[in-house]
Design a protein around this nucleic acid. Structure first.
Lengths: 326, 326
DNA sequence: TTGAAAGCGGTACCAG
DNA sequence: CTGGTACCGCTTTCAA
């Protein structure tokens, strides 16, 4: 790999001059510039980012921490982040935490050691000292610690809407899924739905899912029909759980939505391909990623910020697993 | 951020000594070591990876290039890679190419500029001069250029198995999906299936999908039933397409698999949650990622390699959208 | 308009 | 067993 010194040699100038044409700052004679450019071309030179980062004490890398890219909600977020950052010349160091504090800390450490320009984190531990003590700016995604820059959607409202839609479709014996206890976002949507149900004139019961994995979703779905066979409305904790419930309902030869309504949460791309296509509460994942990236970029560039906690809208996507309005 | 100099000062030793305890090499008196360790502790010191990488001319970062993390097949690969690399202390710079040469080159450039220790690429352009001219080792995933280190599965065989299974279930009017022309992996499985169909005593027709996006999958599925309404067997180019076809078939009130068999490709996690659960050809995505990472690690460490082109098995996953053997 | 030189934060060689 | 120092590749004063 050619270095700036090689280029300087080939062009018969000092490295300082090469650096100037490289960064297009300071004075440099037009004729020298062409000579330098030619030398760079000839040597196939490209600057070493590592050296640059060392001097600047900041790299063009952004740390992205997600719970698990294997969960279909997160790839969307990641793409939103990447697409936005990419355009500004930033790249991603990416890590999955598996909701595991230890792994999370490990990645935070990595990010710091690599002098990232900033980071975006979807974490259950936003109040960690490691975050507040960070020199680099952090934008929280999907979960908001008080006061810190963040992008999220309103889980309580989402949960409420879900419950209202199920009610509107006239279910009388409803099962409400409660997501993993350690996931605040899951708890928010749950409590939103719970509020609505409590104040309505319906029977309802609660089932807790241990995780959002495919396997646990299936298990919970089976549990649902074993424990509450005459459920006629289901508020799932996310689309994966909803898909599992839909699967199980059809397996039991129930008609959806005639015998049982089902509503999901997130609106992952696959939900539309289910049959019947899944009614769900949509979080605009891709845009959330984009917004987080924009916010971070603004902080990095020290632009004045209008808002530092950005709430994204949550919307009901009416498809075919709910009844009302057909 | 504390530097090695700060630590040296606080411990009353030279930076050389601190470096020695840091890397645990060379001689250092037990008592000095404790003093240094204490100083590091007190100053909350951690080494700057950027400085290290500069000196070593190699970072602890690995470049991972994937077509699109939003396609459910790839997150699995990514996790396999990450989990393996993580354990050895390597981290990922991640990028999506969108099958777009320009973006791919941009990321390759990034990888080089950041002095990655190596890279793993799922690319349609493995023969690029940029790859062969690379100083860092590259492992190709999912697509193999002659002679280069790679991990892949046998698409032709996969396609064959798919066709054989559909035949075994006695479909007589088969539609074979042909994936995007620019995706070699898609073409391989297609041609494998085509071979089998050609030598069998059945009617079959071909439909080409423009891309593997959810939208295009839906469009093709609709096209299928419009053009060939009495299709009684479908060999899809991947599980997304299969899901769309299944959706459309049910929509048309066909019984699956009684009226029409459907087989997918990839075995993404969601396929099991479809109803009926999707029969498909499985590629062990997670393990492929793991193997690629292992292979790369071995190359980086200059270990002797037994094999440099690792073929992973492709297997038929019998679920409920095919008939034979119920 | 240009070059010399001092770092950025480490590592490793050499001397003592 | 320890310290001094050159160097990794680049940026940025400062002086010429």
């Amino acid at each position: 790999m050619a270095t700036i010194k090689d280029v300087a040699g080939a062009a018969g100038v000092s490295v300082a001059t090469v650096s100037r044409v490289l960064n297009d700052n300071g004075y440099v004679h037009e004729e020298t510039r062409t000579r330098v450019t030619a030398a760079m071309e000839k040597l196939n030179y490209y600057p070493n980012e590592v050296a640059r980062s060392l001097y600047k004490r900041e790299s063009r890398l952004i740390g992205l921490l997600l719970p698990d890219i294997t969960n279909p909600f997160f790839p969307q977020l990641a793409r939103g982040v990447e697409d936005e950052l990419q355009r500004e010349g930033y790249r991603l160091i990416f890590g999955n935490s598996d909701e595991h504090l230890e792994k999370e800390l490990e990645y935070l450490q990595t990010f710091k050691q690599n002098q990232v320009a900033g980071m975006i984190a979807a974490t259950n531990y936003p109040d960690l000292a490691e975050y507040s003590g960070m020199e680099q700016p952090v934008v929280f995604l999907d979960r908001t610690p008080e006061g810190a820059p963040s992008v999220y959607s309103d889980g309580r409202t989402g949960g409420k809407i879900a419950a209202e839609e199920i009610l509107r479709g006239n279910s009388k014996c409803i099962t409400l899924f409660k997501g993993p206890a350690h996931l605040p976002t899951a708890q928010e949507r749950f409590s939103g739905a719970l509020d609505v149900l409590r104040h309505a004139d319906v029977n309802f019961q609660i089932i807790t899912t241990a995780s959002f994995s495919f396997k646990d979703a299936q298990t919970s779905a089976k549990e649902l029909f074993a424990a509450y066979p005459n459920t006629d409305g289901v508020i799932a904790s996310n689309d994966i759980v909803a898909a599992a419930v839909l699967h199980e309902a059809l397996q039991q030869e129930k008609r959806v939505p005639e015998d049982i309504q089902i509503i999901g949460y997130d609106d992952i791309p696959q939900s539309e391909l289910l049959f019947p296509p899944l009614s769900t509460i949509r979080q605009p994942a891709y845009d959330m990623g984009k917004e987080a990236a924009k916010l971070l970029l603004n902080i990095i560039k020290k632009q004045p910020l209008k808002e530092t906690a950005i709430q994204m809208p949550v919307t009901f996507i009416k498809r075919k697993t709910t009844r009302k309005g057909d």
